[in-house]
Amino acid sequence: MTNITNFLNKHAAYIWDTTDLHHKESTAKLKVFLDFGDNADKRLDEISGADILDFCRWLKETRGISDNTINHYRSALSKFFNYAKDYLDLPKIPNIKFVKVKNQRVRFYSRSEVKQIREYLAGHKHAWLLPMFNIGMNTG
């Protein structure tokens, strides 16, 4: 079976093929996971749900990382293991459970953001998006 570190190095570009920033952030999260305990030396089929739970607890307890940010780590791990399952036809991968997070931060658009959104939507192929945006902006 394939070593997890070797698999990450070989396949990271295919797993996160969206933007360079997303690729960098996701691989950085996986490397933090690999640096935890002896994960870097394990085979893919040796990683268990307990390894991931211990890692998430460690992030929270020692680094003080919020549940929302830990969910980003879980997401990177989930994407990695789902890709590995498909690529290697693994019979089983760790079950990764996300924590429900209540977002208490209210977000408001600035005037320049609203202007940019309206300009973008004005030329969009789906003409209904601009009126829907305007309704949302006026009704909350």
Rank of each mutant, 00 (worst) to 15 (best):
T2W: 14
T2L: 13
T2M: 12
T2H: 14
N3W: 05
N3G: 12
I4M: 04
I4T: 05
I4F: 03
T5Y: 06
T5N: 06
N6M: 13
L8M: 05
N9Q: 14
N9G: 11
K10A: 12
K10M: 13
A12C: 11
A12E: 11
A13N: 10
A13K: 07
A13M: 07
Y14D: 15
W16M: 03
W16V: 01
D17C: 05
T19H: 08
D20A: 11
L21F: 10
H23C: 05
K24W: 10
S26K: 00
T27H: 00
T27D: 01
A28H: 04
A28T: 09
L30Y: 00
L30T: 00
V32N: 00
V32D: 05
F33W: 01
F33M: 00
F36M: 04
G37W: 02
G37I: 04
D38C: 03
D38L: 05
N39E: 06
A40T: 06
A40K: 06
D41M: 09
K42D: 04
R43A: 09
R43S: 11
R43M: 12
R43Q: 09
R43I: 11
D45C: 05
E46K: 07
I47Y: 01
G49Q: 07
A50G: 07
D51M: 07
D51Q: 01
D51F: 04
L53A: 03
D54K: 03
D54W: 00
F55N: 02
F55R: 02
C56S: 08
R57Y: 07
W58H: 09
K60N: 02
R63T: 01
I65V: 07
I65C: 01
D67H: 04
T69I: 03
T69S: 03
I70H: 00
H72Q: 15
Y73M: 08
A76P: 15
S78E: 01
S78K: 06
F80D: 02
N82A: 08
A84F: 11
K85W: 06
D86W: 12
D86E: 14
D86P: 10
Y87F: 14
L88K: 14
L88P: 09
L90N: 04
P91K: 10
K92A: 07
K92D: 06
K92H: 07
I93H: 03
I93F: 01
P94G: 03
N95S: 08
I96S: 04
K97L: 11
K97H: 11
V99C: 09
K102T: 15
K102W: 13
N103K: 11
N103T: 10
V106E: 08
R107V: 07
R107H: 05
F108C: 00
Y109H: 01
R111P: 12
S112M: 12
S112I: 14
S112V: 14
V114S: 02
V114W: 03
V114T: 13
Q116D: 15
I117C: 05
R118C: 14
E119C: 13
Y120M: 15
L121M: 12
L121R: 11
L121P: 13
A122E: 15
A122S: 15
H124G: 06
K125T: 13
H126V: 05
L129A: 09
L129G: 09
L130R: 13
P131I: 10
F133N: 10
N134Y: 12
N134F: 12
I135W: 15
G136L: 15
M137P: 12
M137Y: 15
N138W: 13
N138P: 10
T139I: 10
G140M: 07
G140C: 08
